[in-house]
Structure formats: C-alpha cells, structure tokens
Design a protein around this nucleic acid. Structure first.
Lengths: 184, 184
DNA sequence: TCGAATATGTCAACATGGCTGACATAAATG
DNA sequence: CATTTATGTCAGCCATGTTGACATATTCGA
C-alpha cells in the first residue's frame, strides 16, 4: 500500500503522556498529514458537488440541506450557530432550497416568531443521496487503511478545537436520537 | 454526556454497522463521520486564518505559499495542477505574495519561458509558522485519540480518490526529498 | 529558418458565498 | 405598553472561484 509514510526523524512524543499539547518546541512539521488532509477533504466534498450541479446548488446549499435534514424543525438561529455564517448568507441559499421544494418552514407552535425548518421528502432524498456518497468514501477509506471506524471517529473528533468538542458531541447524539425516533 | 471520545468498548455505534434488514442501499449513512470531518477541517484551517489576517491574506494565499514553499522552483503550470484553480485565480493572490516579498520568481534556466516560484526567507518563515500550528493540532489529535501517526496517514490517504493517490504520493515524497536536500 | 506550439501574463466580466450595516415586522415578555 | 427577541430583507462590499479573449516571449519541429 502506501509507502508514502517514509518520514525519518519522527519518533517522539506522539504516544502517551502530555494530553494538553506536549512541547511546542522542536517538532518536525507534519507536511504529509497537512497535505493529505487538504486532498482528502477536497475529494470528500467533491463527490456531492457533481450531484448538486443538477439543481444548480453549491456547497453552501449542501451544508444547509444536510443540517436541516439532521435536525428536523431546527430554528434558524440554531442553524446559524452550527454553520457559523450570518443570516444574510443563509437567506440566499435557504430561499433557493425552499423555492425548489427541498426545505419547508413551519411556524413555531410554542413561539410563533420561530420559523422551524425541515426537509421535504424531496429534500430528504437528496440529503440521503449525498450522505451515501460520503459514507461510501469513509467505508472504503476505513477498509483500505486498516483502521477501525472507531479510530477514525476518535481521530477526527480530536482534531476539533477542545472547547467545541462537547457541543459537537451533543449535537450529533441529539440528531441521531431525533432521527431514530422519527424513523422507527 | 455521551462522550464520543471514550474507549472503543464503551461506545455504542451511533450510525453504521447495524444490519437493520432490507435497506435500499445497504449501508447506514455515516452521519457522525461526515459531520466530524466537516468540523475537523473547519478548525484545521481555522488556526492559520488568524495569523494570515496580519498580512491581509486569506486561505488562497496560504495554499499558494504552502505549496511553493514545499516545491521550490515550481513552475506555474505545476502549481496550478496541484491547486486545481485557473491561472487567473492564482494571479491575484500570487501577485500580492510577490509584492509583499513572500515569494519570488526566477526565469527558468533551461526554458526561459518559465517563471519558477520560490519562497523568500520571509515566506519560508510564515509557511513554517502556519505548518507548525497545523502540526500541533495533528500531534494533539493523534495523542488524544490513541491512533498512531501511521494510521492517520493511511486513513487520510485512503480518503483520496484512488486515481489521484499515486500522484499525491509522488508529490509528497518528491517535496520531502527536495526540502531535505536543501536543508541538510 | 519559420511557423506552430508552449508557458505565462493580463484584461474584462461574471458567479458564489462570505461579510457589515441598517431597518422592518411580528410575537413574546416583563 | 414598552422592550426584547426571532426572523427577514435591502444594499453594498470582499474574497476567490470561473470563462473567454488576447498578448508576449520562447521553444521546437518540419
């Protein structure tokens, strides 16, 4: 397989000990990992891009569709918080997703100021199609790299800013619960 | 808090694995991995962003600086091939990097049509500073996730489109050789 | 040696998806 | 009832991608 990993001079702190950062001093730059991350992510988001062209959607649409799909009846403010964009940026792509019938808005029951967002059947179908593409890439990568799915999860999780990890965990588990509750 | 980052035995599969009967596609969507990849990459590129603000540079500048640093005397055409952007897009950011003294151009020796690109000392310093930030994130992630560096490399490598992997491997090893040859 | 191909640069226009600032509206809340 | 909150919207700017057309210098092949 990959004899890509032939860096010498790199046998140190990566094992146990310092959970909080290790010495920032003389570490060799991890060019290989940096570049692999760049190319991996490019291909990871590249798959959906082709499909999205059919509807003249871009990556911004994909992100909105995905997180609305995963969080049915999500409030606009919460979606903005996940995406970390402004409402003006969201408005453009959201309008197109609504106009083309992928997402719909409902007035909040308890708070009628809220416009709760959810995918339509059409939106769900597209979100699933895109998720499937990316899932297959992960499945291939895990199988071919000899890693376990769990290791991949832990590794990617640990790449996230420590302060944000709890939020991410909560978000994912909540979404899973909500979707499981809906479908079963 | 159902923490993602616990030992494998304790984790229940949030998605995947479960063979729940007649799936139309077979595999459960790996929402967890998809979203972790999204957040991980966001933070991965987020670190350099702050530093780049000092020079009013964006991510496009970062990518150009990085690959020119890694491939001294690279031809414009080869840089475009790595970045997969048009020469017009490159021109804008490259001009700023040259004007501010981070990159310089030399006329090709064998082919005088070529404008070979290389970083200046100033450019090298910035490229190293940015690479160091991302290296530290990887080191933390590897240590905290209990993966090996090698597993991370193999996993990210396997996330790349199969047809592209050989090119990526060749590019990385060539760059490593070139840089080692220069510095030692 | 000359014409074609190549490497690069540049001008112009446009698309996408970020941003800020200002303001409007409806509903909740004290 | 006044204020706050949730959301929408208009207007304009910025960064970074695109296509198309064309210019220049240099190399290369017949």
């Amino acid at each position: 397989m990959a004899d890509i990993n032939v860096s010498p001079a790199q046998r140190r702190p990566l094992s146990g000990t310092a959970v909080t950062g290790a010495e920032p001093a003389g570490r060799e730059p991890a060019y290989e990992l940096i570049e692999l991350m760049f190319f991996a992510y490019r291909d990871f988001v590249g798959d959906p891009d082709h499909v999205l062209e059919r509807y003249q959607f871009g990556r911004a649409h994909h992100r909105v569709l995905h997180f609305v799909f995963r969080h049915p009846e999500i409030r606009v403010a919460d979606l903005l918080d996940i995406l970390k964009i402004t409402k003006q940026s969201l408005a453009r792509v959201l309008k197109e997703l609504i106009d083309q019938g992928f997402i719909l808005q409902k007035e909040g029951q308890v708070d009628r100021r809220q416009r709760l967002l959810a995918v339509t059947d059409k939106g769900k179908a597209l979100a699933l199609e895109l998720a499937k593409l990316q899932t297959e890439r992960f499945a291939r990568a895990i199988a071919q790299s000899g890693t376990t799915r769990d290791q991949a999860v832990r590794f990617l999780y640990a790449m996230i800013d420590p302060e944000r990890r709890e939020d991410v965990t909560r978000m994912i588990t909540q979404a899973d619960r909500a979707l499981r509750g809906k479908e079963r």
